[in-house]
Nucleic acid binder design. Structure first.
Length: 461
RNA sequence: GGCCCCAUCGUCUAGUGGCCAAGGACACUUGGUUCUCAUCCAAGAGAUCAGGGGUUCAAAUCCCCUUGGGGCCA
């Protein structure tokens, strides 16, 4: 969810600027493999209709980059830092580090690496390496006040002295996120970094690294986080909120784009529904929100419903296919889908709403047929009356307008329209709630309609 | 614990010193439309703009402090 939203904002920004661009999406997700992460993302972006000129540059969890073809590149820069004495090997053990951290925290200081191994000479380092002592590569953080300009937050300041020398790689072949991201930005000529707010704290490290390697500094835009109900960062802990899931449940891509764009951004006026093209046109960094935004499925549902209502029967039929029994005829799908167009929040709901249409036999409690206050007898009479009338209706007149024209006066005559209409509708659908009786009858056709009324009549006998 | 970020209805938000005793949307409540459900329409409830100090003729809007929430660091 977060990574797709970030990709969307990158897309909107770049398209709005009309410049050439390359998208690089970063994510430090440690749970999934690079391959799966990338496949999911690309698939989702494609589904959403976000197409890039040059294709999306490979991102993926940076921890996995050691596997990639860029290894030599990272090694080159790592060696450069080492040669220039801007980085060094560190042989401190976990225990030593942990003890140091505890001590610092107990004294109310910032927990940071003190630079013990910085003192080591090249010879000493080599000796330890040869001996096979476990080690990491640390980058020397220059101590100075550092500020960068964030397009949505303004000036963000840090005191780099509080950070300590960061680990940039486990070894020459295994770079870590903060390092590889800097190399990638440079190599890919990234000019604008648009990413989640959770990366703000990483930015000074990356800037110092850029400076050490004489790389230009890109423009930073940090997006507000997507939050769960409990106002913490949305994560797997909160259940599956992936775009993949929403796609499977039958949310429409244009609705998801619309919804995501409005999480943390707004057009400044009161419009709510936007196409991708409109979003591109309207997008502006100044209107990006600073505070985190809670992910609200009900709002997504509403937006999705609005898009569903705009579809043609043909489009809807196509969209609902995955949620209907296999082998059903397209014309049948079109018949039933229009009944529920105004009722659907997501396409997957059609399965249950339309099952009566495809079922050979309806199963329901006969009590359901009885309109409030009416008894079994009155209900039976009503069904018989409707049956008699409908039997006379010609095949060519079998449409909802005509059926209503014929049945409505009869229902009026009874006094309480529900007495006639309710049993009819239940007989046809077997449901407490459904589309109206006339349109359902039209969709079912004369034969099936009469057959179901007969079944209901027998049931209540 | 340190640093950083943030703070308007339950939620997403409008608002960049006077037009705001705060507007819209979702959700909620009520009523209307051909039985039900939904759509649609109408109405309603819902925020002393986190709190406190300033600055100003005037502050939701600028400044400071406090509080609260979040993120990163391990």
């Amino acid at each position: 969810m977060g990574n797709v939203r970030t990709a969307l904002f990158n897309y909107l920004f770049a398209r709005n600027q009309k410049g050439d661009f390359v998208l690089r999406i970063e994510d430090t997700d440690k749970e999934r493999s690079e391959k799966q992460w990338e496949d999911d993302l690309l698939e989702n972006l494609k589904w959403l209709g976000l197409n890039w000129n040059e294709g999306v540059e490979k991102g993926g969890p940076y921890e996995s980059y050691r596997q990639s073809e860029r290894t030599d590149l990272y090694e080159k820069y790592l060696k450069k830092l080492l040669d220039e004495k801007k980085a060094y090997y560190c042989f401190c053990t976990e225990e030593e580090l942990e003890a140091q951290r505890q001590e610092q925290m107990s004294r109310g200081e910032a927990p940071r690496y003190r630079g013990t191994c910085r003192q080591l000479t090249i010879d000493q380092q080599q000796k330890q390496l040869k001996a096979g002592t476990p080690s990491v590569i640390r980058f020397i953080m220059e101590v100075k006040p550092l500020a960068f300009e964030d397009l949505v937050r303004g000036k963000v300041q840090f005191d780099t002295g509080l950070i300590g020398d960061t680990v940039v790689a486990k070894d020459l072949k295994t770079p870590l996120y903060n390092f590889s991201v800097v190399i990638d930005d440079f190599e890919m000529k990234i000019t604008h970094v648009i990413r989640g707010e959770d990366h703000i704290a990483n930015t000074p490290k990356q800037i110092l690294l850029q400076e050490a390697l004489s790389f230009p500094r890109p423009v930073y835009i940090h997006l507000p986080l997507i939050l769960a109900e409990d106002r913490t960062k949305l994560s797997k802990r909160h259940g599956d909120n992936s775009v993949t899931r929403f796609r499977k449940e039958g949310y429409l891509p244009e609705a998801v784009v619309n919804f995501l764009a409005l999480l943390g951004w707004n057009p400044g006026d009161e419009r709510e529904i936007f196409s991708l093209e409109e979003l591109v046109k309207e997008f502006s960094v100044e209107k990006i929100q600073k505070a985190g935004a809670v992910f609200n499925v009900k709002r997504l549902d509403w937006i999705n419903g609005a898009y569903i209502r705009k579809k043609t029967p043909k489009e809807l039929a196509e969209l609902s296919k995955p949620y209907l029994p296999e082998g059903v005829k397209t014309e049948d799908v079109e018949k039933v889908i229009v009944l529920y167009q105004a009722r659907l929040k997501k396409m997957s709901e059609i399965t249950e709403l339309a099952d009566f249409f495809f079922a050979k036999e309806l199963k329901y409690d006969k009590k359901m047929l009885i309109w409030k206050g009416a008894g079994e007898q009155k209900t039976r009479e009503a069904l018989e009356q409707v049956q008699k009338i409908l039997l006379e209706v010609k095949e060519k007149d079998w449409n909802k307008e005509k059926l209503q024209e014929i049945l409505m006066p009869e229902a009026e005559k009874v006094g309480d329209r529900g007495l006639l209409l309710w049993p009819l509708r239940v007989a046809l659908t077997g449901k407490e709630a459904s589309a109206g009786p006339f349109e359902v009858a039209q969709a079912l056709g004369k034969t099936k309609t009469l057959q179901r009324i007969e079944e209901a009549r027998t049931l209540i006998q």
